[in-house]
């Protein structure tokens, strides 16, 4: 658990952190979102001491981070930034091996770890000898994630890690990261300015504005607790549509039916947003999905009921 208490940081007249407190629970991905200049990157960097706050205290697993020398602290925390920052003169495997080597792991263990991570992120092992300039943007980003995970840190700090990737690749890598996080259960603080990304990846979302946290809640109930003009403006009127992306047809309570040839079929892993789009253009045609060899009818009412349950229920 990362606990930040009463963090304050000013740059001249600008207040980046304004008496801010926050807890990141073990094994959750907390997404910190806000307009640029709201102080979210500053907050993230106080945790691995790239930025020293004017006031406030941070503990990781109840231990104050100032008990460690900055370098020792940083080696225990995975760090992944926009533009990746892979070392261009080192091969992919040497890039991943940086922190394990700093921690003086023995070489066979490092090599095994590199193979494990490449497989985990879906990169072929033949990439080990490649140089960063030979990778595509998405591949480089995956290697960046590998590098951050190399020494198996419990805590992961990610500063707009997928911000520089083109939209198509970004969605792929976001989904891949979500899969990874579901398996590894790291304690992640993830900074972004992309609401879609926050909704897709966050277990909880902290909305930050002018050095303060305006709201902290699950993506489903963001904007629900207290009516706030800034929050509403930020999440937008179509927010309900956006959170449909978080659920799939498998999450719905559906009615079983007999499939017919003229039915329109949907994959059971389709997001509710996709399902809704198909329903909107289906007209009179019946839309079904098959889960465990049983066909179910997909209806707008089911989606609405689900949305009501997760958002307002």
């Amino acid at each position: 658990m990362i606990k930040l208490s009463h963090m304050t940081k000013t740059y001249g007249a600008i207040t980046a952190l304004d008496d801010l407190s926050l807890e990141v629970r073990n094994g959750e991905c907390l997404v910190l979102i806000g307009p640029s200049g709201c102080g979210k990157s500053t907050l993230l960097k106080t945790i691995n001491r790239l930025v020293e706050p004017d006031a406030g205290e941070i503990t990781i697993h109840q231990k104050p981070i100032h008990d460690y020398a900055p370098e020792v602290l940083r080696r225990q925390i995975g760090y992944c930034i926009q533009g990746v920052g892979l070392f261009p003169h080192l091969s992919v495997s040497d890039n991943i091996a940086v922190v394990p080597r700093l921690l003086k792991w023995d070489e066979p263990k490092i090599q095994a770890r590199i193979d494990e991570l490449l497989t985990l992120t879906g990169l072929p092992l033949s990439y080990k000898t490649k140089r960063p300039h030979q990778l595509s943007g998405g591949e480089a980003q995956r290697v960046g994630v590998c590098r951050a995970l190399a020494a198996d840190p419990e805590v992961l700090l990610m500063d707009e890690p997928f911000g520089a990737v083109d939209p198509m690749t970004r969605e792929q890598i976001q989904l891949a990261f979500r899969e990874l996080q579901r398996r590894l259960k790291k304690t992640v603080l993830f900074v972004t300015h992309d609401l879609e990304e926050a909704i897709l990846l966050g277990d909880r979302i902290a909305l930050m504005h002018r050095g303060k946290i305006l709201e902290l809640s699950t993506p489903e109930s963001l904007g629900q607790s207290t009516p706030n003009e800034t929050v509403n403006q930020f999440i937008g009127a179509d927010y309900a549509l956006r959170i449909l992306r978080r659920s799939t047809l498998e999450d719905l309570k559906l009615t079983a039916v007999q499939p017919q040839t003229e039915d329109r079929r949907l994959e059971s892993t389709s997001s509710l947003k996709e399902a809704l789009a198909v329903l909107l253009e289906s007209g009179n045609q019946r839309v079904i999905t098959v889960i465990d060899h049983q066909a179910y009818r997909v209806d707008v009412g089911d989606i609405m009921a689900h949305l009501q349950a997760v958002r307002y229920g």
């Binding site: 790239l50 020792v72 760090y79 930034i81 926009q82 003169h89 940086v98 700093l102």
Partner: peptide, 25 residues
């Protein structure tokens, strides 16, 4: 590249290690 230097620092390289292993090469 500032991103390279920041990630080097963020991963826990000391300034001397950054100079020797990253900046100078």
């Amino acid at each position: 590249d500032p991103a390279v230097l920041e990630s080097a620092k963020g991963m826990g390289l000391t300034s001397r290690q950054i100079l020797r292993q990253v900046s100078l090469p």
